[in-house]
Every structure is written in structure tokens, then in C-alpha cells.
Amino acid sequence: MGRQELLLLLLLFLRPGHGDPLDSYVNTQGASLITFTRKQLPAASIAECAAKCEEETTFTCRSFQYHSKEQHCVVMGDNSKSAPVLRMRDVVLYEKRIYLSECKTGNGRRYRGTVSQTRNGVACQKWRDRSPHVPKYSPTSHPLEGLEENYCRNPDNDAEGPWCYTTDPATRFDYCTIPECEGQELPQTPSRLPSPHGNVL
């Protein structure tokens, strides 16, 4: 293998998205969560547990805990922002960084924080509700977009950033004020072409 091929191979390996999957988690030794949205699964390693969290389809997995002695994994729909934390021996709590952040990078495509009002102070409509506005984007039509509760999101990759349908019948949607993350890099996702969210298809 020539020098150029070796360099190309090294660059491909080091490009974003090919690092350690645990880099997208924050871990806390000896911590556990009190939550009802959970599933216990067998796992031989922390990496296997992380993979099970990523593959979970019953709920959005925001964290997992790995029990080293019992070699099992508990995937959870909550994190330390939404559930009480307990001290527990022989457990490591792993929380997805993206769900702990209350800031955005770029246009906020991957923002998963809990801001739930527009820049004008109007409460956001829950994504699953059909009143006062029938949404084009909903948890069932776009299950991978984090459309939970009434949190601001950017499911259509809008250049203006995260937005939500409003509870004001006269205003279909509005943008949210989400601060920029300073020096904090979040995992990248493939970009999609923007699509209009103001009209019902």
C-alpha cells in the first residue's frame, strides 16, 4: 500500500462519525435514575449497551446504565434533567450529550433541549396535537426528529433554526430563541434539503 493510499485510509477513519460511540455520552460513576420509561437487557459490555440504546424503538433512549457485576444494561427514556438521580454502587450512568444541552450548533438541526416557547413568548403546541394547528411534522410521521412534548425542534433543517407550532390559532408556527453552543461540538447528522413547514400537505 502506497503512502497516499495509507493517508487516505487514515483520513477516512478519522472523519466525524467514526470515533468512539461513547464520545456522544457523558458518564457518571455510581449514579442511577428513577424512571418508569426503561427497559432492562442483557449486555456483555458498555459498547453493547450503547448500541442497544441507539437501537431502541419503544421510546427515545436518552441514557443507559451499565451494571458491571450483573452484566446487564438498562436503557432509559429520561436523563438527569428529567428524572431524579440516585447513588448506586457498581453502576455507570451514560447520558446522551445532545439531550443535556440547552444550546444549538449551526441551524439547530440536532437540538434536543427543552425550550418550549417561541421567540415572542407564545407556548408551543405539542407535536402530537392536532389543534389549534394540524402539523405537517409529528412524532408518527417523523419518528427520528425528537418531536416530543412541545419542545422547539428543526425537523425540516430550516436555516432560521428550531421552531414550533404555536398555541395561538392566528400564528401557525414561529421560531424559538436557542443560544449558540460556544466551543461545544455536537455529533453531526446527514443534512437534508429544507422543506416548508407552514403548509399542511
Rank of each mutant, 00 (worst) to 15 (best):
Y151F: 15
S141Q: 11
P143M: 11
P139A: 06
W127D: 00
D168M: 09
T171V: 15
T171H: 14
D156H: 13
G113N: 04
D158V: 03
S116N: 15
R172E: 09
R128E: 11
S138Q: 04
T118A: 05
T171C: 10
E148P: 01
S131V: 03
T118L: 04
Y137L: 07
W127C: 00
P135V: 04
T118N: 09
R172D: 07
V122C: 03
A159Q: 14
T167F: 06
G161F: 07
N157A: 14
Y137T: 05
V122E: 06
T114W: 07
Q117A: 01
L144H: 15
Q117H: 15
N154T: 10
R130H: 14
T171F: 06
V134N: 12
T114R: 15
G146N: 06
N120C: 00
C152L: 06
H133S: 10
G113K: 01
H133M: 06
P139F: 09
R130A: 02
Y165A: 03
P139Q: 05
A159V: 12
P169C: 11
G113M: 01
Y137N: 10
P139G: 08
R112F: 08
C164L: 08
G161P: 07
E145T: 05
V122Y: 02
N120Q: 12
L147W: 02
E148C: 01
C152M: 02
Q125A: 02
P169G: 11
A170S: 15
R119S: 13
C152H: 05
Y137Q: 10
Q117N: 12
Y137W: 15
H142V: 00
D168P: 07
F173M: 13
P155S: 09
S131D: 06
C164G: 10
A170F: 13
W163L: 11
R119P: 00
N150I: 00
C124M: 03
F173L: 14
T118V: 04
N150M: 01
Y111S: 01
D168G: 08
S138H: 07
E148S: 11
A170R: 14
N154L: 05
R153A: 04
P139E: 05
W163V: 00
G121Y: 11
R128C: 01
D129Q: 11
R128P: 00
G121A: 07
A123N: 13
R172L: 13
L147G: 02
R119L: 09
Q125S: 05
C152T: 04
R153P: 02
D129R: 06
Y111L: 00
Q125H: 10
R119D: 05
V115Q: 04
L147F: 10
P155I: 02
C164N: 07
N154Q: 10
G146E: 03
N120G: 06
K126P: 01
T167Q: 14
